[in-house]
Design a protein around this nucleic acid. Sequence first.
DNA 1: TATTGTTATACTCTATAACTATA
DNA 2: TATAGTTATAGAGTATAACAATA
Lengths: 148, 148
Amino acid sequence: MTKQPDSAIRETSRALPIALLRARETIMAPIREMLSEIGLTEQKWRILRTLDEFGKLEQTAISDRACLLLPSVTRITKSLESQGLLTRFSDHEDKRKMMVEITDQGRKIVRENITLANEIYDHIETRLGKEKVDDLLDLLAELKDLKI
Amino acid sequence: MTKQPDSAIRETSRALPIALLRARETIMAPIREMLSEIGLTEQKWRILRTLDEFGKLEQTAISDRACLLLPSVTRITKSLESQGLLTRFSDHEDKRKMMVEITDQGRKIVRENITLANEIYDHIETRLGKEKVDDLLDLLAELKDLKI
DNA sequence: TATTGTTATACTCTATAACTATA
DNA sequence: TATAGTTATAGAGTATAACAATA
């Protein structure tokens, strides 16, 4: 087998950024419908999911884990705070840090709407098989942590 | 092994939409730098990559393949047309269709900048192994085509 | 009637820089 | 000096609906 020259152009279905995006779009379509019904943006949902998992995080950590720029995090957490879904307060030990904590109401929203996400996941496991899905998640984790 | 109840909440690292996004962000970071240098947005680059592959497409096909809404495609292809990177003309056989074709200049831009994407890909293949990357791409293709 | 695309609109996110406060 | 976050701003994308043209 010969290696392609550096200038060769991969078909887009084998280009990772596009392939990752297309796969994500398929999964997100029904989730977007759900979010639209409860009046949350994708970004707000990611922040709530992240906070539901960790309870309390500083904004930089939210930025990393929810894949949002820090100015976006500031704006969105303020908005979510005004909706009563989280609280914001500066850290006692390092006053530069703004801690963000999910409220009971925020957790309730997540719990009430996680079922659809789980149904989608079950559907995918049924179609692809649990082992394949686990392999996929492992590969995605490896990819995420690569130093490029 | 017991199955989780429907209301169980998966950790975000094992939630496909977030895992796909995080992996993609790692790969996109250096590509964004490149795009910023040549003054193209991610979306413009996706459209150019797609057109480079297929030569000529109608807008709905671009919308599907580049994961963009049709109004966005209209706006962006008009902008790319004014940059001389593609041409737009209505289809002779079905006048409703707006065909979009990449120009030589558009192809040149793609070719001049595809090297970095290939280097990243080679790096990933070196670290994960070619077989794993192929498996990943196969899984992503399966996922994309699922009817959910 | 359905399809293809355009336009308009409001909203949201992205990206960057300049800034404040704290360490 | 470096870090954490905020604010401001411009630009771009998202999402929806209403519309026109064509099939």
